[in-house]
Simulated assay, not measured.
Amino acid sequence: MPEHADGDAALVARAASGSEHAFRALYRAYVRPVYWLAHGLVGTPADAEDVTQETFLAAWRRLPELTLESESLLPWLATICRFQAANRVRRQRRDREHTAAGVDETLPATVDVERQVATSILVDQILAAVRGLSPLDQQIFRLCAAEGYAYQAAADELGVSHGVVRNRLSRIRTHVRTATETETA
């Protein structure tokens, strides 16, 4: 049986008790969406990888004190990721100001704060729209949109047909798009 079929709450409880196996399952489930959020906030693949790793390290340390408020660990990880990205940007800015060697060509010349805020707001809107979905639709969204499962793989995982996943995902995308467009209009 797949590891995340237990649900995030069960995996979080086991990981908080020291289960590396449970934490690896959570990592595999959420590393992609955390990476893409980090990339949107810091702008480079290398920095996004570092922020992603720092996010999961901080999550591992904080799991014993976590009370999961939703069915998904993603909102909590997204919050940690935003803080880690902001810390990295501040650290890079400070390092650039204090080095005599000049500007590091690999770092962005300027930090687009407006883009970071817009990305953060969009992520919050998407998460809010997904929280309003049925449990099955939330699982389909997590598997297909966040984890990159193909329709048939998600269908096999959830015990439903390929058509159910395809049709529901189409409705989910429309719902999320409408919810985010309504919020930004």
Rank of each mutant, 00 (worst) to 15 (best):
A46K: 10
R61G: 14
T55V: 03
D50T: 09
E49M: 12
R61H: 14
R61T: 14
Q53M: 04
D47E: 14
Q92G: 11
L57C: 11
S70K: 11
P45G: 09
A46T: 12
E71A: 14
L41R: 05
S70T: 15
A48V: 11
F56H: 05
T52C: 10
C81P: 08
Q84W: 08
T55Y: 07
I80Y: 03
D47H: 13
R61D: 13
A85P: 01
Q84F: 00
C81Q: 00
Q53T: 04
A48W: 00
V89C: 02
R62I: 09
P64I: 08
E65Q: 14
P64F: 07
D47K: 04
V42E: 08
L63T: 13
L63Y: 08
E49Y: 06
D47Y: 07
Q92K: 08
L68V: 13
L77N: 11
T55N: 03
A86C: 03
Q92F: 02
P64A: 07
E71M: 07
Q53H: 13
N87I: 04
G43E: 04
E49Q: 14
Q84I: 06
T44C: 09
C81W: 02
T55D: 08
L74W: 01
W60Q: 09
T79A: 09
V89H: 04
A78T: 11
G43R: 06
A46S: 11
R94W: 11
R94H: 14
R90G: 01
R94Y: 05
R88G: 00
L73A: 15
F56E: 09
R93K: 11
A58P: 00
F56M: 12
D47N: 15
